[in-house]
Amino acid sequence: MQNPQVSIIMGSDSDLPTMQGAIAICQKFEISHEVAIISAHRTPERMVEFAKTAHTRGIKVIIAGAGGAAHLPGMVAALSPLPVIGVPVSTRQLSGVDSLYSIVQMPKGIPVATVAIGNADNAGLLAVQILASHNPDLLQQVITYRQSLAEMVMEKQDKLDELGSEKYLLQM
């Protein structure tokens, strides 16, 4: 995609199913984005070059997903002046808790916004909100999206009121 505003990166192609949520959100809000596999451990020079130059290419926000040692978000944040949103990817051994701890425990001065384990959708939404802070049209789209979430909850409440809890559960 030309002139991407959001860069969605991950340490391995095995992270792509998780990171697809951020990609889908960017598509939903028509945010130009790029997607790349950049391993902090296996392609460190590529990671350094990416992080140091992303802002010069027009990137505004970086979403970085990683599992296990999960160094990618923190290392990119250490090298880039851009906001970085970390997505802890679930692991077989520790269910992503290791990833979460690796991403969220950043030293003072090098922040990484961190979403819940496996919740790349929220990372995408946070990136959209960051961009919307300087874009009134995008801000209105965020407001409309939030209203649709509220309407969805109220529709579920109406259905629960109509059916009662037992019948509602049977239809879930």
Rank of each mutant, 00 (worst) to 15 (best):
L100N: 04
H41R: 08
N122S: 11
V76F: 10
H134V: 08
K156Y: 07
Q157Y: 13
V35S: 10
E30V: 09
L126T: 10
K60G: 03
Q105M: 11
A54L: 13
M154V: 09
I62A: 09
P81G: 13
M106H: 01
V84Q: 13
E151P: 00
Q140P: 00
A66V: 10
R146N: 14
R57T: 07
L160A: 09
V35L: 15
S32V: 00
G74P: 01
V153I: 13
E155Y: 04
L72I: 04
H55S: 15
I110Y: 01
Q147H: 14
A69K: 02
K156F: 02
H33N: 13
A54V: 12
Y101K: 08
L82R: 14
L100Y: 06
V112K: 09
A70K: 01
A150P: 00
S99H: 03
N119K: 09
L79A: 15
P73E: 00
D161N: 13
G65Q: 06
I38P: 02
L138H: 06
H33A: 07
V48G: 01
D161L: 11
T144C: 00
V61A: 04
V61W: 02
S80F: 11
T144F: 01
G58H: 03
H33D: 06
R42Y: 01
P111R: 07
G58L: 03
N122G: 03
T144D: 15
V97L: 15
M75A: 14
V115N: 05
L126Q: 12
R92D: 12
K159Q: 15
S148H: 12
L72H: 01
P107F: 07
I37Q: 05
M75T: 15
L160D: 01
Q147D: 14
A54Y: 11
A150G: 03
N135G: 04
L160T: 02
A66W: 05
E155L: 13
H71I: 04
A77I: 12
E30Q: 15
S80I: 12
P73T: 02
A66F: 06
Q157F: 12
D121S: 13
V153A: 12
D161C: 01
Y145E: 10
A51T: 05
I62P: 06
V61H: 02
E151R: 10
N135T: 10
K108I: 12
I85P: 12
R57A: 10
N119M: 09
S148Y: 01
S102F: 06
M154Q: 14
A116H: 03
Q105Y: 04
L125R: 14
V76S: 11
L79R: 09
V61R: 00
V112Y: 08
M47P: 07
G124Q: 05
F50Y: 15
Y101M: 15
S32W: 00
M106E: 02
A113Y: 00
D161T: 11
D121R: 15
I63E: 08
I85L: 14
L100K: 04
S102K: 06
M106Y: 03
K156I: 03
E155I: 05
G118P: 05
G109V: 11
V115S: 06
P44R: 08
P107Y: 07
L131R: 05
R42Q: 08
Y145H: 14
E34F: 02
V97W: 11
A40M: 03
M47W: 03
I38Q: 01
A78Y: 07
D158G: 05
S95M: 00
K159A: 10
G65W: 05
V115E: 07
I31K: 00
P136C: 08
S133W: 08
H134D: 14
A54I: 12
